[in-house]
Design a binder for these strands. Structure first.
Lengths: 350, 350
DNA sequence: TCAACGAATGAAAACGTTTTAAATTTCTAC
DNA sequence: GTAGAAATTTAAAACGTTTTCATTCGTTGA
């Protein structure tokens, strides 16, 4: 290993880099063809003879030609960019990282790049979306945590801008989405607690305004009614409640009479908070009470083998989001761009 | 709230969007000026009279003019893009999300966008960097988890491509970086355990190949030697070890003779794993043993008030990374682009 | 022989901006 | 008044593509 040579100070990388960079013209000169022909040959237009096409491709490969994205973008009006609207509520454990990882995976072999939407701070999500559309900063948009009448969805539907979201809405106009089957998650989670012999189950709901809150509530209530079991829905807290507050709430609730002995936690942090809170109150997991938690990383099941978990694969969701958005961009009439991902139940035996 | 109107199916958004979009020419026509003048006026060139400049700016604002990034990029050769090389090792709790949040914050009022480096899968980090440089996909690069003779740093230094990394290297050529003072973190953490009366301290180290492993080791050893206390450095595991494996290791170690009663955990997941492992072995936190953990989210201190934590503010780091990289891009000779962020000690009183 | 044709290639314009070099206007000093 | 300088403004080229519309060149059919 040797030390790298120090580059000339003050040199402008742009300029330095630019000279010598092969363009279509370079290839044209070498091949003795017109730029037009080269352009066509590279995009495999049928009117160019097979021989010429192959020759051009070979030269391009040899001199390391790469099309200039800026020029293509200027000419065609396509940015080859997918933007993701980073939620301002992102303390969630690796939530968007996993999704982004999946999206990048879907974009890997394509000409598209993933950009993290700028100015997502201090301005509302709708404004961020508006900004992207107006400046045409991307060819498509991805975002998460939808509401039943989500303002972003409304705006994008009205303008016809390609998008896909993680989560459903209640607009009558169908639009692309990828969602997790939270109904089944909550239904199966509740049934598991009941099967374990719990008398009273409680669910930590997401914030009311998010669509999937209803899905979880529905799944929960369906299982509860089928079994005719006692239940409880804490109103004072939700999934976005800071872990410390949630913990204190659980502790005090555990001391009150009629406390629940089964918890549905649709998030890892909330599960940890519930465990701490119950522990503060002297209750033992798997003995005094049980939990079924949604896990999106492998954190929980590695740490607390006694917790039943149902997995949500966010990387897979990201991959689907990316893939389907590309379909939508390339074909505005594409059907079937709606996907409901099944929960992966992970109950240890016994 | 009304339902959004359905856009005409099959309409090409690019074309639809393009017509009517104001350009420099639009402003020029309105103002009765040449395109050149408008361009100059908007960039506040001193040779344009103040009156003209103000008038042009006003018109631009009124008609909602926004410069076409593709055209600017084509002309100037600057992409106005900062790329971040997403680490393939990203199960870490919200690690890169926080950093990206900070970077986006720094880029907010600038013309720069943050893009997540494509093709970061299945290919090495160096190749990803190489790709970005060759295609000139960005004006600057950010990455994390540096090694003493990091191949990415070497490549970037050699080519003179602007970059900044989170973490230091051992190259003699100075380069921009932002790092966390892990020496002080480990030193203060160790002293805290000693002050609490622990007899034998252990540290969970990062993978050996990462630069900051040495920093932590150094801080740890300095405190240990000063106090002349017993210590232990587990070789079988590190910070990247899956939580379950780590937990099992801690449990079995706790049962062996001469087990440590103080742990330095430079990561939240490892802290939770240590707590679970010790709990499995019947040991009680704050009674049988103590932990000092590095925390990057608020997770730990909310869940485990008994754990002493030292905070690392990754959002702040991201903000510095973004800011300093812009300085580097705009001025290749910029000095002082090295920053060591101090640990935020957060020991509860008593 | 030649008009017509299809296959293959090429010339030139355009996308919206920045920049170099030049032109115009306004000012200053005599 | 006018030469020259200073202050403004402008024309035109260029960045690297894509695309529209032509052109070339063998071939074919009459």
């Amino acid at each position: 290993m040797t030390e790298p040579s120090r580059p000339q100070r003050g040199e402008n990388f742009d300029i330095a880099h630019r000279r010598g960079k092969p363009t279509l013209r370079t290839i044209a000169t070498i091949a003795g063809l017109a730029v037009t022909t080269v352009s066509r040959a590279l995009s495999d237009a049928p009117q160019i003879s097979l021989e010429t096409r192959q020759r051009v491709h070979r030269i391009a490969r040899e001199i390391g030609y790469l099309p200039d994205r800026a020029a293509q973008r200027l000419k065609t009006g396509r940015t080859n960019v997918i933007a993701i609207l980073l939620d301002s509520h992102e303390e969630v454990v690796g939530f968007s990282t996993s999704i982004m990882y999946g999206i990048a995976k879907a974009l890997k072999e394509t000409a598209y790049h993933l950009v993290v939407a700028p100015n997502f701070l201090s301005t509302t999500d709708v404004e961020a979306a508006e900004y992207i559309i107006r400046n045409h900063l991307a060819d498509g948009l991805i975002f998460t945590r939808t509401e039943p009448l989500d303002a972003r969805v409304r705006l994008l539907l009205e303008t016809g801008f390609p998008f896909i979201c993680h989560g459903r809405t209640e607009f009558s106009t169908p639009h692309p989405y990828v969602d997790y089957d939270n109904f089944t998650f909550a239904y199966e989670a509740t049934r598991r607690l009941i099967a374990k012999g719990r008398r009273k189950v409680a669910v930590i709901l997401p914030p009311k305004r998010l669509t999937f809150c209803q899905h979880i509530l529905h799944g929960f209530m369906t299982a509860v009614r089928e079994a005719g079991i006692a239940y409880e829905i804490p109103e004072a807290i939700d999934l976005d409640t800071p872990a410390g507050v949630l913990r204190d709430f659980i502790r005090s609730r555990a001391d009150a009479p009629d406390a629940p002995d089964g918890f549905i936690c649709p998030g890892e942090v909330s599960a940890l908070a519930v465990i701490s809170g119950m522990s503060d109150a002297g209750r033992l997991l798997a003995i005094d009470y049980d939990i079924v938690a949604k896990e999106t990383s492998r954190l929980l099941s590695q740490l607390q083998p006694k917790v039943d978990t149902i997995h949500e694969d966010l990387t897979a969701a990201g991959e689907d989001l990316g893939r389907m958005l590309l379909q939508r961009i390339n074909n505005p009439d594409a059907e079937d761009l709606q996907l409901l991902l099944p929960p992966q139940i992970n109950f240890p035996v016994g």
